[in-house]
Design a protein around this nucleic acid. Sequence first.
DNA 1: AACATGATGTCAGCTACTGACATCACGAAC
DNA 2: GTTCGTGATGTCAGTAGCTGACATCATGTT
Lengths: 198, 198
Amino acid sequence: MSGAAITRLGDMGRWEPDARGRLMLAALALYTERGYEQTTVADIAQRAGVTERTFFRHFTDKREVLFEGSGALQETVVAAIEAAPASQTPIDVVGAAMVRAAQMLQERRDFARQRAAAIAANPSLQERELLKLAKLGAAAAAALRERGVREPAAGMAAEIGVAVFKVAFEQWIADRQPVDFADRIQETLEQAKALTNA
Amino acid sequence: MSGAAITRLGDMGRWEPDARGRLMLAALALYTERGYEQTTVADIAQRAGVTERTFFRHFTDKREVLFEGSGALQETVVAAIEAAPASQTPIDVVGAAMVRAAQMLQERRDFARQRAAAIAANPSLQERELLKLAKLGAAAAAALRERGVREPAAGMAAEIGVAVFKVAFEQWIADRQPVDFADRIQETLEQAKALTNA
DNA sequence: AACATGATGTCAGCTACTGACATCACGAAC
DNA sequence: GTTCGTGATGTCAGTAGCTGACATCATGTT
């Protein structure tokens, strides 16, 4: 069935293992090559050596296949906020959490870049990315509230944190020379502070 | 053809006028009554007294019918930024522009509330709303750059402005007593400044 | 060797959305 | 007042995203 699909050495029989991973790779490749709209779910499935139906068993829709890691990212941010020392200000708590998030992506800059390019090229994918970031912000706000930060401070601090992440991310992948993503976050956070102080 | 569609006195013949407006009203009503997913485009069209095809001539998709005013809002914000005195800081420029935007919605609080409720109830609609806000932010950032504000300050200031708008909007429609939306913006902006100063 | 299980394949069907073409109401030209 | 151009609508066929129901197959358990 799998035909020319990626076959590894360790094949212990069964179907080709890791259909999920193959689907993610196939989708990113096709979105990059011909664009999101010109790619059909059947195309992705075929390239991964499975059926269209199987695609929808692993991912809720055609967009979600690009957003696998977002859950882990959110967990990291929330954990960082929960673990922050009580003495820190809300903004610095969120800032430190975003640094943690940045460190997760640090080593996969090429991948992050290709993915970002695909997303930037299509409004549908942008919408999904924005929703993920909004959820990240909501989770961060909730974690802050858990620490005793009141509204609207919690919500505002979380929003600023996400904004810092967005702006820093863009700069990070735009840079010619690979710079440190975490450093970028710090710089952008300082920028935000400076902006609101004048 | 129009059947029981809303008929006004001034009917000068022709088809029922303002199919676009009727579609918008029908959509909001149905999204509120049975929810977005349980509403079919054919339902909306029927309620408005037109065909499904006509719906798609007026709106690009099933979500867009709820976001008619977003273009005008963005123009208002950009115009306010362009007209701001040169002495103001970027943050205050954006803050003032958001106050202008708030004033546009001020008198239609009930409508804004119903619309917000429908959006809050469905992720698909949230995505679209987030995209509109992101575009608003991008336009604001561009307007700031036009005034000489450099990156990443322009992007960051715009993001903070949008964040202030989001947080203030939520509080505005959550309040029991109708308070002044513009006031809420001001307060939230002060919150943001206080957060980044400690 | 029979069986329970999880992942996949197959198939039918709904709905969002689009292109192509016909039609109709109105106003302008004649 | 008849003809004609135009813009908005209706009709129809077709693609693609997505789902439910059911069959199948590889595994390892008994």
